[in-house]
Amino acid sequence: MSATALRVAFAGTPEFAAVALDAILAAGHTVPLVLTQPDRPAGRGMKLQASPVKQLAQQHGIAVAQPHSLRLDGKYPDEAAAAREALQAAHADVMVVAAYGLILPQWTLSLPRQGCLNIHGSLLPRWRGAAPIHRAIEAGDAETGITIMQMDAGLDTGDMLLITREAIGADDTTAALHDRLAALGGRCIVQALAQAAAGTLQATPQPAEGVNYAHKIEKAEAAIDWHLPATEIERRVRAFDPFPGTTFTVHTAPGKDKDEVVKLWRASVVPASGQPGEVLRAEGDTLVVACGEQALALHTLQRPGGKRVAAREFLQSCTLPASLA
């Protein structure tokens, strides 16, 4: 191992984390142990599926631990104790954490010689918490980025080690921004590890002002409130792509088929007005719905069990009432 390489334990679960692990390995660091969430049922057959991080670790022959919890006094003390033994045996210089999904107790934070570094998908302290990419788009932020943070016992409260900014485009979805930030996170953590190996990594405390919490996205947030301004609804459409999507209900006439919950995947703001939820135009390839302020042109929609289609195809297959409210 070269003088600039470190022994890096890694904790992460989804694709965002797998991109970072791949970058760490490509940079020549030794990864003796990976922690990731237990396999989960997925797909139509609901078969157990390994996380993207576990799949990558197995491709590289890296030992994997999958405890349900790391709390020694919690519901799974044996799993936590086994994970601690594995981490102790790994003799890691540092642990990198990216979208792991479990709370790290103090014993975990203190065990590696240089502690735990977190790859956080926002410009701290603007968005702490579980869904910083979604919430940045939903709020209409002009930029976001990656913060490499020295983890402490708080929720994303540790000192900042490295910050890199990324513009949010006017048509960015969470899916698109996620992929750019995942790649950026990989580059940033490699840079931070190089500085850590050289002893030049410097910490800056987070400002006390400007703290927001990016709460986890709930399915209940998907339903569109047409009383909101069109700009807010349009941002939410992009923020909730690919999950959970934004939805509206098409109420059918009595005696007809049951109501349908339609997903809206792409829309744009147009200078029109009417009662919130009023269908202002529904012909050809144009579908416009009034909002609390201005109106929304609906471009890409999806009926239950169907695929995403343009407004023209949607209108050919669905008769809309005068109002969606």
Rank of each mutant, 00 (worst) to 15 (best):
A182S: 15
P242M: 00
T13W: 14
L177K: 04
L201G: 00
W265Q: 06
R187S: 08
L315A: 01
L104N: 05
P304Q: 08
A99L: 02
S317F: 08
L301I: 05
P304R: 10
A223R: 12
G210C: 09
E283T: 07
S51V: 13
A222R: 07
V53D: 08
H60I: 11
W127F: 10
A194K: 05
L87R: 05
P254R: 03
C291A: 09
A27Y: 04
G158I: 06
T13N: 13
F314Y: 06
R128Q: 14
Y213P: 00
T286L: 02
G158C: 09
I224K: 01
L111K: 02
C188R: 03
P254V: 13
V211I: 15
P112D: 05
A57P: 12
A5Y: 06
A176R: 12
A142G: 15
P242T: 00
G169Q: 11
T4I: 06
L184R: 04
G115W: 05
R135T: 08
F16H: 12
L161K: 05
T200R: 01
E234C: 12
P271R: 13
H251S: 09
V8N: 12
L301S: 02
R84T: 11
A9K: 02
V96M: 11
P32N: 07
K54M: 10
L6G: 03
L35S: 02
A196I: 03
A57V: 08
Q195V: 02
A82V: 13
A214P: 06
L117W: 04
I24W: 04
L48F: 14
A175I: 07
P14I: 11
P229C: 06
A214Q: 07
R303H: 04
S51L: 12
L124V: 13
T200G: 02
L48P: 00
V190R: 01
A253M: 11
R281W: 08
A136T: 02
V97L: 15
L162I: 10
A136C: 07
Y100M: 11
L161D: 01
L111P: 03
G154S: 14
E234I: 04
T252A: 15
R113Y: 03
E313H: 08
A86E: 05
K256M: 13
Y76D: 02
L111N: 03
G140E: 13
V262M: 01
A310R: 09
A80W: 00
I62K: 08
S2E: 11
A50D: 15
T108F: 06
Q37S: 13
V261L: 12
P276G: 04
A230L: 07
A214L: 00
G28K: 07
M1R: 14
A175C: 10
A82Y: 07
W226V: 00
A153Y: 10
H134F: 01
V309D: 02
A17K: 07
E221V: 01
G145H: 01
G185I: 06
S323Y: 01
R235S: 04
A295M: 04
E278L: 01
P205R: 10
E79N: 04
V250L: 09
A42L: 14
R71W: 13
V270Q: 06
T108S: 12
A175P: 01
G12R: 07
E293A: 05
L6E: 01
A310H: 11
Q316C: 12
G43Y: 14
C318L: 13
A182V: 11
D93E: 06
A139Y: 09
I168R: 03
Q202I: 02
W127P: 05
A170P: 05
T252G: 15
T246K: 02
S69A: 14
G186I: 10
L123N: 01
I233F: 03
H29Q: 06
L33C: 10
